[in-house]
Design a protein around this nucleic acid. Structure first.
Lengths: 414, 414
DNA sequence: GGGGGATGTTCGGAAATCCTGACAGCCTTC
DNA sequence: GAAGGCTGTCAGGATTTCCGAACATCCCCC
């Protein structure tokens, strides 16, 4: 149960901490042991890997575990917390449980019981949400939208550049909907013979159609839908509400098609009830890294010998790349990189053989202060942009005081 | 808040039971005192009256309160359980809380604290009285006022901030009045076309009007009533007492409208015979909790999977919130929170993703600290890689001291 | 087995950062 | 033209961060 799970252990006592640490390691968990509240905040809020559970002592040198929990519970959605303490009482236990702690164990305890209860949380912990777009804020927003769209039977339109995984999102939407058992029918107008498939889906003169009873019709590359098919669909929608769920996907080229009349505007608006915009990878580098990790894990296992990991510089290079081909490009780059890699790590040169300059950055690294400032600067600008230049509002978004933000803006020259 | 509530008290100790029983009676609760598990099962599962809460001892002559709880928890919906015990320990408390008990108090306890915690639970449960404003003293006062207003046919004026549910109160008043069958006609002057609707309600030159025979006219956003309509209404009132019941609603802006003459003072006083002031949510946090509970119960049932409950921290945060948007804001927050929640409880971060009072949803940004940490983490990894894992060397590259780098690595879990 | 160098860790003080609070302008909006 | 909301600015104090110093280890190489 615990194998491969990421667990943060917050415990200052050497003996106790050591024994828990050892045991969890033995069980195959990846344990991050911190001894102070301040450390724990960072480890839980900005983890290198999603945290599956937190095992937390109450009495700590620089504060209490309770403080830690309350502080975090205001700002982020938390992994399950298991409190472990020798000094607590019923009141504390009840208070914490009511506040949302997952479990509470008194010292001394049986290690086996402890492990069992921890496994329970980890198993239940839905911190491993089923991501199908990515882990960035933008991606989870899209996922939420898809989930909601799946609840109502309204035509949905997925809009995004090439390779952003519109097809996969459509399939996910179908899979989340109530009548997922009813079949998923894709018509890709970028392919030959799309019209034939489409014809079988639409009601004919006698009103019979393949999808009369439900299911999902996915119209891919909608902008290239033939005019004649558009007319038939519009007419079918007009005559009688379709039983099937309609999902369509298109890219930037739809603007053009609408402008020059190649696509009927009235039909477009009928299909665009729920709009699901998928941002390109260049706007969400975290997802590029996430997707790379997934691909790496999947494909590296087949490799002989498997690589030990991914160079941090590769991540850096991916973050900087603009991804004109989005997910499709990423996929092919990673797979090719895995084949080409010679050392033990996946290096930038493996993934970007076409960009020799990424390999050469050996000498000097920007200092920590530099990148920190750069990151802050980017974020501040982003916040200011979303608030339309309102400083106070931006400060709230960034969770600093207005004065601090002002100071930083002075310092960074914004 | 216990007045009129039905509470089952399960306690075998005469002294303890008697004292609780007396006190609860004093508070106005209807208490059903049983001294055995067997009796309690019946009293709770097949009560003569819906039970609002159960106060339960653990050690009982024919079993334990824990058994009672587990036995009942198989059946459908349990009232909130508050356990009271002198012998229990942390383990028991945690076990019960995890199983869904609402609270757990150790003997001996302060009676006042006990009552407070019990009230909290009871507030959550649905009550016998048909509340439509809230459960706080202020809200029940408003409800009483509405009930009385329904008895007499005098113009009533509901005054309250945006989102305090003035429309709902008006409808409730209508529903409580004798001629509720006569129809309810709303004219919302904040909306387009209000004047047209208004015209059809007012007697014309021939003295005929839509509401000549009764019913209720509800003038919403009264302060924005056009001057011309004011004149017509004043005239109609002057000429002949209207058959219909008049309810109007306005907010703070009416003071302004009266001051600068945008609203006729004479008309205002004619409409303000029965004054129903609705206090804002910030002045009655109990109602915020109550409304949240109602919404939670209603919407959580549709959720998949349903949440187990609401974190005590969330209640606390709601209590502290000022609710600039009052009920409307609360509603949208709770509904969004239910969508966003990831764990098993509704946490503060779900309901208040934006810390302070921003009424509308705002795309949440990672905090400055988060991106700063993330940037540092990346750079540190990069440096460590280029130095081949040599910490001291990496520190030099990053231009920080070795100690600092070590600290950061601790904090970030590297 | 004994340096030498690197790391893991703690400590105390200096330096910075951040927050609260306050006040003055400078806009809108009544 | 008064009020209220927002920004620019500053001060003072509480925290946090950062650094240098200091040990104890640990490992490698001689």
């Amino acid at each position: 149960m615990l194998k491969g799970r990421h667990i943060v252990l917050v415990e200052d006592d050497e003996i106790m901490g050591g024994s828990i640490y050892q045991r969890l390691r033995l069980e195959g968990a990846v344990v991050h042991w911190v001894k102070q509240v301040a450390r724990a905040v960072g480890a839980i809020r900005t983890p290198g890997h999603p945290v599956d559970a937190v095992v937390c002592d109450i009495r700590l040198p620089d504060g209490s575990g309770e403080d830690l929990f309350f502080r975090l519970s205001d700002s982020v959605s938390l992994p399950p917390f298991l409190f472990v303490t020798g000094h607590g009482g019923v009141d504390q236990a009840v208070r914490l449980m009511r506040a949302g702690a997952a479990d509470y164990i008194q010292k001394p305890f049986e290690m086996s019981a402890f492990l069992q209860r921890l496994s329970l949380l980890v198993g239940a912990g839905s911190s491993e949400i089923d991501h199908f777009v990515g882990i960035s804020a933008a991606a989870t927003a899209v996922e939420d939208l898809v989930r909601r769209a799946a609840q109502v039977n309204q035509p949905a339109m997925i809009r995004g550049e090439h390779g952003t995984g519109k097809g996969r999102i459509a399939r996910a939407l179908h899979g989340l909907s109530a009548d997922r058992a009813q079949g998923f029918h894709e018509v890709d107008f970028a392919k030959q013979g799309a019209s034939l498939i489409f014809d079988r889906l639409m009601p004919d003169a006698e009103g019979t159609a393949l999808v009369g009873s439900g299911g999902t019709i996915f119209l891919n590359a909608l902008a290239r839908m033939p005019r004649e098919a558009q007319d038939r669909l519009a007419e079918a929608l007009e005559r009688d509400p379709l039983r099937a769920r309609l999902i369509s996907a298109c890219g930037r080229e739809m603007d053009q098609a609408l402008a020059d009349g190649a696509f009927r505007a009235d039909l477009f608006y009928k299909l665009d009830v729920i709009d699901i915009p998928v941002p390109p990878f260049r706007d969400r580098p975290d997802d590029a890294i996430w997707l790379m990790m997934r691909l790496f894990e999947a494909k590296n296992a087949d490799r002989d010998p498997p690589l030990a990991g991914i160079s941090a510089r590769t991540e850096e290079a991916m973050r900087a790349h603009v991804w004109p081909g989005n997910g499709r490009e990423l996929r092919s780059r990673v797979i090719r990189g895995l084949e080409m890699a010679r050392g033990t790590l996946l290096m930038p040169a493996d993934v970007f053989p076409d960009r020799p300059e990424v390999a050469e950055t050996r000498a000097e690294l920007p200092s920590l202060a530099t990148v920190r400032d750069a990151a802050e600067r980017r974020q501040i600008l982003l916040a200011l942009e979303t608030t339309g230049g309102q400083v106070g509002e931006a400060a709230r978004l960034l969770q600093v005081s207005r004065t601090t933000l002002w100071e930083k803006m002075q310092k960074l020259g914004i």
